[in-house]
């Protein structure tokens, strides 16, 4: 099985460790991974700001980069959701691009969905003896339709202590350019989110999207809190036993 990595621009430039963890996990399951260099960004920052033409031009980098791929896997429910939810409309009526978009939609998966629904893996044999809270990302859950795949993966980790917090399903206030354009409201939202996370006494907050985690982490560091944030792939990879040569 061959997987092309769609790192997303955020992970590529700000959180490369997340993509690395994902690659190493996929490698362990005998998946052949490649990284098409032509990819940049799914176009969401422009699309969600109303700049549709700009978004389309950028999105084309993905259509070209992944056209030959068997599977495309991304460490983000939001960027995957952008492809699944909006690409058909974005490229409707454009010869060639329309077909490329449809092909990409059909083969693109968010990391946890790929692990659980394609590879059929829920127990990676990882151990992570910490108190862990889970933040379900809005776009992953509502736009893409991630159900409990991330939680299935978390629940099979040995010695993990799952902790809950109120309003876990509420948006953290990131929203892409929303956090820049409406930074006051966004700031109030993330303040409420971190309050609940801190009160849960979690040591680590896990999610499937670095957009949310970047926002929440920024607030946690601002408040000088101890809670760390980690992408699901990082937690799973860190918890894996060392490989026998």
């Amino acid at each position: 099985m061959k997987v092309s990595l769609f790192t997303t621009c955020l992970v590529d430039s700000l959180f490369p460790n997340v993509a690395e963890a994902m690659v190493k996990i996929l490698d362990r399951y005998g998946v052949e991974v490649d990284f098409p260099h032509g990819q940049t960004c799914c176009g969401q920052p422009a699309f969600n700001s109303g700049y549709v033409d700009e978004a389309r031009e950028v999105a084309k980098t993905l259509l070209d980069a992944f056209d030959q791929s068997e599977y495309v896997v991304a460490p983000s429910g939001s960027c995957t959701g952008m492809i699944h939810h909006y690409y058909a409309d974005l490229f409707a009526g454009l010869p060639d691009w329309e077909d490329k978009a449809e092909r990409l939609i059909n083969k693109t998966y968010e990391f946890s969905q790929f692990m659980v629904n394609v590879l059929g893996v829920t127990d990676l044999g990882a151990r992570f003896p910490h108190r862990v809270a889970y933040h379900p990302s809005c776009h992953g859950a509502r736009l893409l339709g991630i159900k409990n795949e991330p939680e299935q993966l978390l629940d099979h980790i040995q010695d993990i202590q799952r902790v809950n917090f109120p309003h876990a399903h509420d948006c953290c206030g990131f929203g892409g350019t929303f956090a820049i354009k409406m930074s006051d409201i966004s700031g109030a939202m993330v303040e409420e989110k971190t309050k609940h996370v801190v009160e849960s006494e979690a040591e680590v907050l896990v999610s499937t999207d670095m957009g949310c985690l970047m926002n929440i982490d920024g607030r946690l560091r601002y408040e000088n809190q101890k809670v760390q944030v980690k992408h699901l792939a990082e937690v799973l990879y860190e918890g894996l036993p060392a490989e026998k040569e």
């Binding site: 790192t7 700000l14 959180f15 956090a179 930074s183 006051d184 926002n215 982490d217």
Partner: peptide, 23 residues
């Protein structure tokens, strides 16, 4: 554009090497 963001939280920094350079 970052001023509003950092009024209520820190912003992350670009890493030394992007993933594409590590690949």
């Amino acid at each position: 554009p970052l001023a509003g963001w950092t009024e209520s939280r820190y912003a992350p920094t670009l890493k030394e090497e992007p993933f594409r350079d590590k690949w």
